[in-house]
């Protein structure tokens, strides 16, 4: 795999895209190492799709710099196009055509001659479990099959960088797992994958590094582990034997851990975050002290777990912080 001097698949600084008054992407700085899965995580309207569409040469940036494998996005768009592929948020194959026809069409456009294109189409359909549906129009495919034909179409040209814009939104758990497996297999071949998602566990599962974006800017960046530890030492989950004891348990936990305790929908469950942002708190010690106090008060604990905060919690904490800073400014 050709990699440029810096070993970065994507490099942007101060990238901007505006639509009228909306600053969809507002000074985005990214550095995506080649050969990894990189996650762009953000809520609806964060600017993920806009960022990806710029990097895939579909939209012209209004400001800032961007390079893909060292090629300038503005002046060397054609060179970028030979290296990348995009699976858009919405179907990016022709729904009126069959699976085979779509793949032959795209193979021909990549320069394969007819017999080779036919062969390549059959090979990809087989690899993506679509041989049985090969001669069916794509509009008659299920959601999972559509995603697969979309991704198959995107790797026809053996891209060095694959953009996947919310590849599992709307899929059932089984189809989602299939897509995850495909992504792992693709990246194992040395392809860089830039993945956007709203699902924290998806980024956690797949990505080596994550950029959390909100309102067109990166608000946090790092490995999933770094992001989690940046907001606290850990999270305590408790399940009590007796729901009636929950208010009492909540009071004790809040006192010992010096934090707010959340009541879960489950009437016997409680969750508490241990240690504030950046504070060097020994989560395990705090947890065992809490357990001892609960036992002393005669509260029976059926389940106790101490873990890293989930990315959901990271995300809520980060966007809260961003919102608060904005108010101050």
């Amino acid at each position: 795999m050709a990699v440029n001097r810096t070993g970065l698949a994507v490099e942007t600084s101060g990238l901007v895209k505006t639509f009228g008054k909306t600053r969809a992407v507002d000074g985005l700085d990214l550095a995506v190492p080649a050969g990894t899965v990189y996650g762009l995580l953000g809520p609806n309207g964060a600017g993920k799709t806009t960022a990806v569409r710029m990097l895939a040469t579909l939209l012209r940036p209004d400001g800032g710099e961007a390079r893909v494998f060292g090629h300038d996005l503005r002046t060397e768009a054609d060179a970028v196009r030979t290296r990348v592929s995009l699976t858009g948020q919405y179907a990016s194959v022709d729904e009126d055509l069959t699976g085979t026809e779509n793949l032959i069409l795209l193979s021909r456009l990549l320069g394969y001659r007819k017999p080779a294109a036919r062969e390549r189409a059959a090979q990809l359909l087989a690899a993506f479990g679509l041989t049985d549906a090969a001669d069916r129009q794509v509009k008659k495919y299920s959601g999972g099959m559509r995603r697969r034909i979309d991704i198959a179409a995107s790797i026809l040209n053996t891209p060095d960088l694959l953009f996947l814009d919310e590849p599992t939104t709307g899929l059932d758990p089984r189809s989602r797992n299939q897509v995850w497996e495909i992504i792992r297999a693709v990246v194992a071949q040395g392809t860089t994958v830039l993945l956007t998602t709203q699902y924290l566990d998806e980024a956690d599962q797949l990505a080596g590094r994550i950029a959390v974006i909100d309102e067109g800017k990166v608000i946090a960046e790092g490995t999933p582990g770094q992001l989690k530890s940046s907001i606290g030492a850990g999270t305590v989950h408790l399940r009590l034997r007796d729901a009636a004891q929950r208010p009492e348990a909540e009071r004790i936990l809040a006192k010992v851990l010096d934090t707010t305790v959340q009541q879960e929908a489950d009437p016997v469950a409680l969750t508490a975050r241990v240690g504030g942002s950046g504070a060097a708190v020994d989560a395990a010690a705090a947890g065992s002290r809490a357990l001892a106090e609960l036992a002393g008060a005669g509260i029976v604990v059926d389940e106790f777990s101490l873990g890293q905060p989930s990315l959901d919690e990271v995300f809520l904490a980060l966007t809260d912080k961003a919102a608060r800073n904005e108010e101050k400014a």
Binding site: L110, Y112, A116, A127, K140, Y141, R148, E181, A185, Q189
Partner: peptide
Amino acid sequence: TVAPDTTAYTPSAETIAAVLAPGEKP
């Protein structure tokens, strides 16, 4: 009518690796 996705498909790393093999680009 959307045909159900009846085939229990399990992605195989080998077959996907094969289609991604860096052969001669046309």
